[in-house]
């Protein structure tokens, strides 16, 4: 009976966030099949730990589990994609240099944008997905990615700069 209750509460508070879960997993694993596996696994874990969910933001709670599951998967299957984080302090200093000559048009080719996001190192990619596609606040992102808010801000700045650079490069060169 109690299990049944847990199940229906879970279906009402957590299951509606399946879209967000799949979107994040799909972006982090970069393919549909693995994203589905990861999401299934994440939901199973979420269900097991559901007793520890104290209400509040179900989407953040689920996404932090999805993110961890993705990282476990990456650790196992895409080892070399991890550990590419730059020395953020140094790059942050570079970031403050204005680059007025780069302009981005109002109607950027969405497919091109999709490509450059997919090519971002995973630590930056996840911040972009959470901030721009899920529209989460710095605080929520910090909780999901388990990093300080300051790091969220520096990674976001870095990620946007990388995106802008590769976009202008592609648009100028026409090719890679």
């Amino acid at each position: 009976m109690e299990e049944k209750d847990k199940q229906s509460r879970f279906e009402v508070t957590i299951l509606p966030h399946l879209d967000a879960a799949y979107n994040l997993a799909r972006w982090l694993t970069r393919n549909d099949h693995d994203a589905q596996d990861v999401v299934q696994d994440a939901f199973l874990r979420a269900f097991k730990f559901f007793g520890g969910f104290r209400g509040g933001n179900g989407r953040s709670w689920l996404l932090s589990i999805v993110r961890n599951t993705c990282y476990n998967w990456l650790e196992k299957n895409r080892r070399k994609e991890l550990g590419t984080v730059f020395d953020e302090e140094i790059h942050l200093l570079e970031d403050t240099a204005a680059t007025p000559e780069m302009r981005l048009s109002q109607n950027l080719d969405r497919e091109l944008v999709r490509q450059v996001v997919a090519e971002l190192p995973v630590e930056f990619r996840e911040i972009i997905i959470l901030r721009e596609l899920e529209e989460m606040s710095y605080k929520e992102i910090a909780e999901i990615a388990d990093i300080p808010i300051g790091t969220v801000m520096s990674r976001l700045a870095r990620a946007r700069k990388l995106l802008q650079e590769s976009l202008t490069q592609r648009l100028a060169g026409g090719t890679k």
């Binding site: 549909d32 589905q36 802008q164």
Partner: peptide, 20 residues
Amino acid sequence: NLRSALRSEKLYFHPPPGLQ
């Protein structure tokens, strides 16, 4: 401009119908 490109529906992956 970058933001509005990122927020387009085209970039959001929806789960296949059988997953739920």
